[in-house]
Amino acid sequence: MAERYSSFTPGGTGWFLQRVTAAFLVVVLAFHFFLLHFVNHAYEVSFMGTQARMENIGYFLTMVLFLVTAAFHGVNGVYNALVNQGLEGTQKKVVLAVLTIAGVGLVAQGTYVALTMSGMI
């Protein structure tokens, strides 16, 4: 029988954070879809409406946390998928660095947009 391999150590920090972020993303994504597709239909979403929602500190913090969580979950998942496929050595370090820089850049740009939309800057 084939042996199961995972770069995640069961019960380890990476394994735990991947599952916690997945659970959080499911809940916040459901909130997002409910609010922006059922309460406000897609054709009703406007720039001014987005600014108004982002001015609410609870909504703002939820969206920024959504961004950070999604970026971590995505980068961590892609990295571990590549490690599971046999990535190792220098290539593993380079991929980790590139993914980390991309994730930090995404969070920085998204946070900047959120701050701008909320009127904080």
Score class of each variant (00 low, 15 high):
residue 34 F to R: 05
residue 39 V to R: 15
residue 101 I to S: 12
residue 12 G to Y: 11
residue 62 T to S: 13
residue 43 Y to R: 15
residue 95 V to Q: 10
residue 49 G to A: 03
residue 53 R to T: 09
residue 94 V to I: 15
residue 89 G to C: 02
residue 41 H to E: 12
residue 54 M to I: 05
residue 59 Y to E: 07
residue 9 T to Y: 02
residue 47 F to C: 00
residue 57 I to N: 03
residue 57 I to L: 07
residue 50 T to A: 06
residue 42 A to N: 03
residue 64 V to T: 13
residue 100 T to M: 06
residue 28 V to Y: 11
residue 55 E to Q: 09
residue 46 S to T: 08
residue 118 S to A: 09
residue 13 T to K: 06
residue 18 Q to Y: 11
residue 35 L to E: 00
residue 112 Y to K: 08
residue 53 R to Q: 10
residue 119 G to V: 04
residue 2 A to D: 04
residue 45 V to S: 01
residue 43 Y to A: 12
residue 50 T to H: 03
residue 58 G to S: 00
residue 50 T to F: 06
residue 100 T to P: 00
residue 31 F to T: 05
residue 111 T to G: 14
residue 30 A to E: 08
residue 76 N to Y: 15
residue 74 G to Q: 02
residue 41 H to D: 09
residue 20 V to I: 14
residue 4 R to W: 14
residue 66 F to V: 02
residue 74 G to D: 05
residue 33 F to Y: 00
residue 29 L to Q: 05
residue 55 E to F: 03
residue 6 S to G: 14
residue 19 R to I: 09
residue 57 I to D: 07
residue 108 A to V: 09
residue 53 R to D: 10
residue 81 A to N: 08
residue 81 A to R: 13
residue 37 H to I: 07
residue 62 T to D: 09
residue 56 N to F: 08
residue 58 G to N: 01
residue 78 V to A: 11
residue 3 E to K: 11
residue 120 M to N: 02
residue 90 T to E: 11
residue 38 F to N: 07
residue 55 E to S: 05
residue 76 N to T: 14
residue 87 L to W: 07
residue 90 T to Y: 12
residue 108 A to T: 07
residue 59 Y to K: 03
residue 59 Y to A: 02
residue 112 Y to N: 02
residue 105 G to W: 15
residue 7 S to Q: 08
residue 39 V to F: 12
residue 8 F to Y: 09
residue 20 V to K: 12
residue 58 G to I: 02
residue 84 N to H: 09
residue 9 T to Q: 01
residue 43 Y to C: 06
residue 48 M to P: 00
residue 2 A to R: 03
residue 3 E to W: 14
residue 70 A to D: 01
residue 16 F to I: 04
residue 91 Q to D: 12
residue 18 Q to E: 10
residue 68 V to C: 15
residue 119 G to H: 05
residue 91 Q to R: 14
residue 51 Q to I: 07
residue 98 V to G: 11
residue 79 Y to S: 01
